[in-house]
Amino acid sequence: MRPARTLVLSAALGAGLAATLWAQQFKFNLDHLEGKATEHVDLSLNSSMLTFASKFLDGKDPDEAKAKKLIGGISGIYIKSFEFKDDGGYSQADLDKIRSQLKAPEWGRMVGIKSGAEGENIEVWVRMESGKVSGIAILASEPRELTVANLVGNIDLESLADLGGHFGLPKMKKK
């Protein structure tokens, strides 16, 4: 009887944890854009992948050391980024489908910027749990570029922005 009870309890805890993690993530619903994009990046790194990767990050390299420290609090990174040859490669509905999943009270839009000259829009959404950041979502769109990122876990936004400032434009995967 005892092993059966333990099994049920473990399953319930596992399901609870999975449900919590699932709630921190959202569905991208952007697979249909892959055919239209000239270049795209699709990254899906779960907790075990991040732990594995952190073993290969060089603590002596300043950027890699920062990345290593950052992913210590992150349990998942999911990114889709597309570049299109012409304007209109994606629709406003694609963005709305994602926005509709970022609901209060867990999710709140922290900041949104609009750059008129380049037609760039970036929204940063934050998920809070017990007063702590438990996930962020970034929606960045330009006329010919769309990037959606979901980072799950406790993220140091300042360090991440600082790290992003050190790098040039990332090389995208050619289709």
Partner: peptide
């Protein structure tokens, strides 16, 4: 596999961090 995973993490950091840096 480790090098590939590391490259993926660094690319993810570049993309997400780059956008946050633009906002900042």
């Amino acid at each position: 596999e480790g090098q590939l995973a590391k490259e993926q993490v660094m690319t993810a950091m570049r993309i997400a961090g780059g956008k946050l840096n633009r906002v900042q």
